[in-house]
Amino acid sequence: MLTYALRRTLISIPIIILATFLTFGIISISGDPLQEIRQLPNITQEQIDNVRESRGLDDPVTVQYLRWVENIAQGSFGEYMISPRAIWPDIQRVLGNTMQLVIAAEIIAFVLAVFLGVMSAKRQYSLFDYTTTTISFIGYSFPSFLFALFLQVAVVQIFVRTGVRIFPIGNLSSANPGTGLSFLIDRIWHLILPMASLAIFSVASYSRYMRASMLEVINSDYVRTARAKGLPERTITTRHAMRNALIPTLTVAALSFGTLLGGTIIIETVFGLDGMGRYFFQQLGRRDPYPLMAWLTIVAIVIVIFNLIADLLYGYLDPRIRYD
């Protein structure tokens, strides 16, 4: 398994390099990073030229790319275009915040989806199944930003009418969040609405996959055999059926992790969360290629890692799968 993981990682390196080169090229030709300062009152052409020269913007794209790679090789993502400020500390901060949100949302979505999927399959065509199916399709078709706005308005209306604030509707923490446990509680309190907004689509999606694969598994021969042997229904479901039914759902969950990261662009902007999505959105507006490249590289690496994790989990869940 270690050889397999190593081989997969090595294969990923040229893919990431190619992706970064293409992205760098596209960003470089798609906009003028000095446009923002061009609009400043009293800015002179000399100042614009100074920045252009000091940042090597007149160099060919390949030279600029190699300079960026050099920074990466030195363990940093370089500096911002206009002010000489390191990018890496900002990336570290927003990545940590986004991971809190995405991982929590993904875990909640996965656990909930597995539960709903299994129960729906076990009680196929029951009221529970129909209700879950209906809610899933609503969740599937409901844009997450709209759901986020809906939640915000609902919470505000409750506050206006009753004076009780159930959840905050923005920011990652209160103005005075405290430390230790108090900070943790405050953070969870602030993340509940964003997590719900982010998880709703995943719950709907994963639960459908789980239900379908569970239906396939519980009608298979080996489950029928287990039942004939007199194993308790709970054991059949959890140890025999669910474990196999989890494989496709897990694949979808791992592959959609990148999509979930993308989804944070909207959710983090709506809730004002200082995460990767909001960072990307802000830097896109500034047309600064270096932080955008840092963002894209990190996202690419995260996607590769989670795809690898998914592959490795197959083997754990299904011993028939071999890593050649």
């Binding site: 923005g170 709506v270 909001r278």
Partner: peptide, 15 residues
């Protein structure tokens, strides 16, 4: 917070 709509909701909601 980069979204005017949310800022307004926060203002209305006493945040």
């Amino acid at each position: 917070l980069p979204d005017t709509t949310t800022l307004t909701q926060q203002m209305l909601g006493g945040e």
